[in-house]
Amino acid sequence: MSDAISVRGLRKAYGGTDAVSGVDLDVRPGEVFALLGPNGAGKTTTVEILEGYRRRDAGEVRVLGVDPAVGLSGGPAARAWRARIGVVLQGTGEFDELTVGEVVAHFARFYPGAEPAAAVIDRVGLGAKARARTHTLSGGQKRRLDVALGIIGRPELLFLDEPTTGFDPEARRDFWTLIRDLAAAGTTIVLTTHYLEEAEALADRVAVIAAGRVIAAGRPAELGGRADAAATVSWRTPGGGVERAESATPTALVAELASRYGGEVPGLTVTRPTLEDVYLRMIA
């Protein structure tokens, strides 16, 4: 099976300044792929080229086997391609005077194989709000409506641009469950986020973009040599202080501590660098 997204040597400059300078990416069908990177790193530009909103200056790009530049035309080829992708943008406008049900039902008519509006509204957890005008929704509820509009057409590929910004922790967990369900049903998902724990919880693979290039890509647990990195072992000393040691062989260290304390080691923790630690080191 060919890749859902394949990008080679993607370049884009604004007024002579490179925003994206040679990005290579592959997203496999059915995978959840997270794009990380600081603001201004070229993340949004890259994603908007993939979504068919922007022209590129150079590079080979295929999204579901189609050059996404087709999306700029609005013609029949663009519509056939758009019917297969779902896009959830950052902070897009609502239709203030319409109800949730009306908006979702209307968007359903744009797609040839749309899911029933009521089912999608339930799925994003807005069932109780179906008859509410969209301007009465909270920030998190609006975001769920955005997602409903993104998935109403049963997309093969779903783009989510910072989908959980402004969510409370519970809403974020609910949202993760929704994304996992979509992924389990075979939808390929490309996600940008500033929340590293979100990338870690959802993504099969992540790529870090900085200064217009992909500087690292891989499974979240292995990114930047994380799996092989030295672990930090900490424990409480009899005097009440906390002792810390970095070790490439933490198991041996713990075994030695266990024999030293004759069983339980008080306050024992063993940690590897978090995705956030690795990420911050990378973009520094």
């Binding site: 979504e51 068919g52 909103y53 609005g74 663009a78 519509r79 056939a80 758009r82 019917a83 896009v87 943008l89 902070g91 897009t92 406008g93 609502e94 239709f95 968007f107 744009f110 797609y111 040839p112 509009l149 057409g153």
Partner: peptide, 18 residues
């Protein structure tokens, strides 16, 4: 105003004929 608020961008992301 609709362009500013992203309504147009959102519609553009669907298969709706322009």
């Amino acid at each position: 105003i609709e362009r500013d608020r992203g309504v147009l961008k959102r519609l553009r992301g669907t298969p709706m004929p322009p």
